[in-house]
Design a protein around this nucleic acid. Structure first.
Lengths: 210, 210
DNA sequence: GTCTATAAGTAGATAGAC
DNA sequence: GTCTATCTACTTATAGAC
C-alpha cells in the first residue's frame, strides 16, 4: 500500500495507537470522564500529537466509533454457520452467539458506551445500528425466509424475536450484572427460543415424502 | 405523616427538588458531564444546599437511582392486565407495553444513563434489575405458568423471550434511533411474538369439552 | 438550613521548540 | 510530525455569613 493510500484511509502507526487507546479509555470511563491526557499516556504519545491527528475530543470519539463499526461488522462468520436444517443449526448458532457475545468484554464495554451516549450522539448510535444490528437481523431473516420445509409467516419479525432474546439476555446477565439476581441457564433459554421459532412455522411439505 | 417520618424517608421539599433536578441533568448529560452547578440551578437552590443533603455527587446519583427504582417499580398495572385467556390478553398487553415504554422519554433517558454507567456503578445497575426487570419477568412467568388450558414447558424462559423482544425493539427503534434504518411495524412484531408464544404451548385439555 | 464567595484542582486545547 | 510547557475555563467541594 502506498503512502498516499495509507493517508487516504487515515491510518498511521500513531493514529492506530491513539484509536486503540481511545477505545480503552472511552470504554472504561465514558466519553466525558475519559481524558485526553490519559488517552495520550495509554497511546504512548503526547496530547499535541492526538490533536494533530484529530480535530478535538468529539472528533476522536466519532472516528473511533466509525472504525469499530466497520471492523466489528464481521458477518461472514454467521453467514457460513447459517446453512442447513434449522432444527440442527439454530441451537448451535444461538448457543455459539451467546458464548461469543458474553465473552467479549471489550465489545460489552463499547456497547455500554454507545448506548450511554446515544442521547447526545444519535448519529453514532445509528452507525452502530447500521453496521452491527441491521446485518444480523437481515442475515437471520434471510435464512428463515428461505427454508425449504418451513414457512414462516413473518421472517423479519421472527428474526427480531430471536436477536432480541439473545441481546436482552446478555444485557441482563452481563452488562447489568444480573447473573445472581435473575439467574437463567443459557441452554434453557436457547432450547425454549428454538422451540418457539420452530413451532411457529408451518411445515411447507413433508421432507420425508417427496 | 409526621415530621419525623418525613425525615426518616429522606424527603423534604428541597431534597425532592434536588432529586428531580438530578434526574433531569444526569439523564440529559450523563453522570460526569452533569454539573452540580446546573443541578443546583435547575432545582432552584444553591450548590451548598445540595451538599447539605447529599454527601457528594456520587451519593446524589445513588440516591436518585434508588428513588427511581422504588418509584417506577409499578407492577400493579401489569398484574391487573394479566388475567384471562392469553390469546386475548397477550396481544393487548404487549401492544400496550410497547406504547407505554416508547412514549416515556424520561424513562428512556434514565435507562440510557443506567446502562451507560453500569460498568462504573455495578451496584446501581443491580438495583435497576432487581426493581424493574425482575418483577416484570416474574409476573409474566407466573401468568404463563398458571394457564389452565396451556402448558408451557419453561414459563421462565418463555418470559425472557417475550420481555427480551419488547425491550430490544424499543432499544433499537427509540434508544438507538433506528426507526428509519431498520423500520418494523409494532403490531407485526406483537402478532409474531404472540403467535410464537401460543404455538409453543401444549394444549392441556380442550376448553370446549369439559 | 440556606446562601455567597472562594479554594484547590483538573479539563481541553494550543504555541512554539526541535 | 512530535514533544514540553502553558493558558483559560470550568469542576467539585467547602468556609463562613445570615
Amino acid at each position: 500500500m502506498s503512502k498516499v493510500e495509507a493517508k487516504r484511509a487515515f491510518s498511521s502507526k500513531k493514529a492506530d495507537a491513539i484509536l486503540s487507546a481511545a477505545l480503552q479509555e472511552f470504554s472504561a470511563h465514558g466519553f466525558t470522564a475519559a481524558t485526553m491526557s490519559q488517552v495520550a499516556a495509554t497511546a504512548g504519545v503526547s496530547k499535541a500529537t492526538i490533536y494533530s491527528h484529530f480535530d478535538d475530543k468529539e472528533n476522536l470519539f466519532v472516528a473511533l466509533v466509525k472504525k469499530m463499526a466497520q471492523q466489528k461488522a464481521s458477518t461472514p462468520f454467521w453467514e457460513q454457520m447459517l446453512q442447513g436444517d434449522p432444527r440442527k443449526v439454530l441451537p448451535l448458532l444461538l448457543s455459539k452467539a451467546l458464548d461469543t457475545i458474553t465473552s467479549d468484554s471489550t465489545l460489552l464495554a463499547f456497547k455500554r458506551l454507545i448506548i450511554g451516549e446515544s442521547g447526545r450522539f444519535p448519529k453514532l448510535a445509528q452507525i452502530f445500528v447500521c453496521n452491527m444490528s441491521k446485518p444480523s437481523l437481515e442475515i437471520l431473516s434471510q435464512y428463515l425466509a428461505t427454508q425449504p420445509y418451513l414457512k414462516f409467516a413473518d421472517p423479519e419479525a421472527t428474526a427480531r424475536v430471536v436477536v432480541g432474546t439473545i441481546v436482552y439476555y446478555t444485557q441482563m446477565q452481563e452488562m447489568l450484572h444480573g447473573k445472581e439476581i435473575i439467574p437463567m441457564d443459557k441452554e434453557r433459554l436457547v432450547a425454549t427460543l428454538v422451540h418457539m421459532v420452530l413451532s411457529s412455522a408451518e411445515p411447507l411439505q413433508s421432507e420425508d415424502s417427496p
